[in-house]
Design a protein around this nucleic acid. Sequence first.
DNA 1: AACGATCCCTGTTGGC
DNA 2: TGCCAACAGGGATCGT
Length: 273
Amino acid sequence: MPELPEVESVGRALAAELTGRRLTGLRVRWGGVFEPSARAARDALLGRRLDGLHRHGKYLIARFAGPGGDDAHLMIHLRMTGQFLSQPDCVPDRHVHVTFDFEGRAVHFRDVRKFGRLTLVEHPTAPAALAHVGPDMLTVRTADWLERARRRAAPFKSVLLDQGVAAGLGNIYADEVLHRARISPLRPGGSLEHGELAALRRAIRPVLRAGLRRGGTSLGDLAYLLPDGRAGEHLAHLAVYGRDGEVCRRCGSEIVRTTIRARSSHWCPGCQA
DNA sequence: AACGATCCCTGTTGGC
DNA sequence: TGCCAACAGGGATCGT
């Protein structure tokens, strides 16, 4: 599922391909992906040039330049199975909901589960649309968010997944971060000591960067793919996620899978306390 | 404020 | 073998 490293990988690929190109057509097969509506998206975006694409947490925000500086923004969330595909020979199947025709290039938005959303945001409210989202996990410089996290009573795994505290981690990388920091996913935030908080802070960036370096983690039949159709190559390098029943490479114990707050958690009882 | 429950979807899987 | 219920998952929303 696309988390921060996957969203960043997709964003970089799309930016490289599309920045500076004008959107000349919008082919909509299922309008439900658009908020507030496909018509609004068409009215706001057609004829405009994509002049910026950035990521915050798991959101991509595409900026389309307007004639008089009145930019339009498209906030993209892939949720579980959203993909952008841009191979020239890509044949759209029934899960391709929208095709963006840019000058000289077409990009398809495909989403089997149909949870993904493309939200049109008018210029002045673009930052407000992200008000409920915490600081980005990869670029946040202060540890303020960690102080907030420490005040929570819920299992720390759930706190790491709470995008309002800090944004970007999903189920896979949250498990990986906890393993690297040697902290059990069941520990309440308030029980973490300073040394453990420091370990957590130190674990987040390397875990995310390792995933990013390999183009993300592609897992299963509905896996995330890069726009050129390639799979991410990080799967084989995961320490715990999906490795239940296998041996921890750090301590040799058997990795277990437990359910925490209705989410599967993979962790090592041998070295995560 | 912060928690749990529910809903959105559909391909895959497991039980009978 | 076939059918169907359960499941997975992020996050919005609602009720407590």
